[in-house]
Design a protein around this nucleic acid. Structure first.
Lengths: 335, 335
DNA sequence: CTGAAAGCGCTTACAG
DNA sequence: CTGAAAGCGCTTACAG
């Protein structure tokens, strides 16, 4: 690992001259420049961007905190954040929390300690005051997928309308016993994504004069097994449900699995729709109708908003923005 | 963002004293310590770990370069790397390459520029000399899943044996027309993971006196669509194949899909086995028999090996280690 | 027990 | 056009 000094020594000039030559920040005599370039080559010198950041007060790194990658929308989001960040000259620090507030706190603690210029987070909502702290301490923050704090920018999808529309869509297909398998939507562990989906569902169902049939997960992490359990419970309560809406794809996959085991034909006897399309839906043997949340756009926009905030001069930070993107229906075999 | 200096000013002492108090590196008078702690609290001071690293020559950050998260084993590996790194006090910088050598080069260039103490990479194999350069420059490096360079530690699975065993397994089930849908296994874009699988397949097939039926993907990134195309081609060449082995799960899913479209019953008329289990297999409507590669163990071990190398004193770096882990058969509905 | 100084690898006014 | 100095936020011998 050679340093500026090493290059300077080899090129017979001052480190500051090397710095200037490499950053193209002032005119350098061609001979000097040539000697410097030769030395850089010879030592295969790579400037230490972090040390540069120390001086400039920038790290060129953003933190990304997501719950979990496995068959969730977050794997796509993570990739699009990485791509967008790289194109703007930023690196991304990856943390996953499994939606455990304690882990989340740990991640935030690290990221605030000089590692990043800003943070993109899909949070549990249980460390809001810490997040505000970090934000007012000078780090840029953008919430994605879940908005827990009005004072911090966010970019989410309109889950309520998605859910509402899903009921209407299924009703139009002739379904009259439309069930919802949801994430946790009440109590301390409730997430707004599930609460709003529940509300959208209830309002549509009431409007149409249908019965409310809803099973809510008992686990913070949405697993396949928990999905199977919920669908099983649902079919106990309402064995002749003719439609199942699931909050997330992995629950949708659980529904397809359980219905197949019970020899209930999809979609003829029971239709299945997922409210969070994460690209897995169209790969399934029986493909899953989903409301696709625009993962790539969310990642992309989040990075753009974050970097805008990071790079704005201290006295003219951009205003808090709360972006809401619609989900779009992808109709497939399951409905 | 308050600094050591701010704390010192408020606590009426020297910054170096604050530093010592916080790092517990020498005895501090209780009164002084109390004043310091109060100041830290009041300013909600968080030490800048990166600046600390500058002085100490450590970043406490590792880079992770993977091809692609989406329905691959890399989402599990990424999570386990994150978990293991965090537990050892390291953060992880995330990059994905889509197996594009140019992107990979870009990622390596960033990571070597002072961002990390070491790199975990599932590489394309087309930037080996750069990787060696980085390694001899003093950064720790560990290869995962794909080993392209003997001089750098690695941790992979025994793909050849996995593939060989899969043929034997299918033969024992009565299959006699066993096909392989592989990733790119020859030419400049070939990866050893696919080459060795091909070799294992060929040697088993020869041993058993069966015909070789192999279709190889034409795309660097293993997509569902390409999988479908390959399976389609395979069924043209050999319409009565009674077993399909696929290099990766997403090809396995493609096989299930195409066979269903053609009304070929799985497993009665044709069995399907994936050679890279990535946890998606058991979530499918018709679950997918897979050779499970121990993703968690790989991530975990990779971090441990990397950190060992990072933290070893300069004159006693650990020897190059090439770890090979077996894949284990998870028998499911598709076979 | 604690202060003052030097230094990690860089950048950037300030001179000349 | 380029050198010398100061400084980013921290740590750590060295004194006292």
């Amino acid at each position: 690992m050679s340093t500026l000094k090493d290059v300077a020594r080899l090129a017979h000039c001052h480190p500051s001259t090397v710095s200037r030559a490499l950053s193209n920040t002032s005119y350098i005599h061609p001979d000097t420049r040539a000697r410097i370039m030769a030395a850089v080559e010879e030592l295969s010198y790579h400037p230490d961007i972090i040390a540069r950041g120390l001086k400039k007060g920038k790290r060129h790194t953003i933190g990304m905190i997501v719950p979990n990658l496995h068959i969730t929308i977050f794997d796509d989001i993570a990739q699009s954040i990485d791509t967008a960040a790289r194109s703007l000259g930023y690196s991304v620090l990856f943390c996953h929390t499994n939606d455990d507030p304690e882990t989340e706190r740990e991640c935030l603690d690290r990221l605030r300690s000089g590692f990043t210029d800003g943070i993109i987070i899909a949070s549990t909502g249980r460390n809001n005051s810490m997040l505000r702290d970090i934000h007012s301490d000078g780090l840029a923050v953008v919430q994605i997928i879940r908005q827990h704090d009005d004072s911090i920018s966010s970019i989410v999808s309109d889950y309520r309308t998605g859910s509402y529309n899903a009921v209407k869509y299924l009703y139009a297909k002739g379904c009259r016993k439309i069930a919802l398998v949801n994430g946790i939507h009440k109590g301390v562990y409730a997430l707004s994504t599930y609460r709003t989906r529940y509300e959208g569902y209830v309002s549509a169902v009431n409007e149409l004069g249908l019965a409310e049939i809803c099973v809510c997960s008992g686990s913070v992490v949405n697993t396949f097994e928990e999905g199977c359990r919920c669908v099983g419970e649902l079919l106990k309560v309402c064995p002749d449900a003719d439609a199942i809406m699931t909050a997330v794809d992995i629950f949708g996959m659980a529904a397809l699995k359980v219905l197949r085991e019970r020899d209930i034909d999809v979609p003829d006897e029971c239709r299945v729709v997922s409210l969070t399309g994460c690209l897995v839906g169209h790969l399934l043997e029986k493909s899953l109708t989903s409301f696709e949340i625009p993962a790539e756009l969310i990642g992309d926009t989040a990075v753009r908003m974050l970097v805008d905030e990071i790079e704005a001069p201290k006295d003219s930070k951009p205003e808090v923005q709360n972006v809401v993107l619609p989900a779009s229906l992808s109709e497939r075999e399951s409905s």
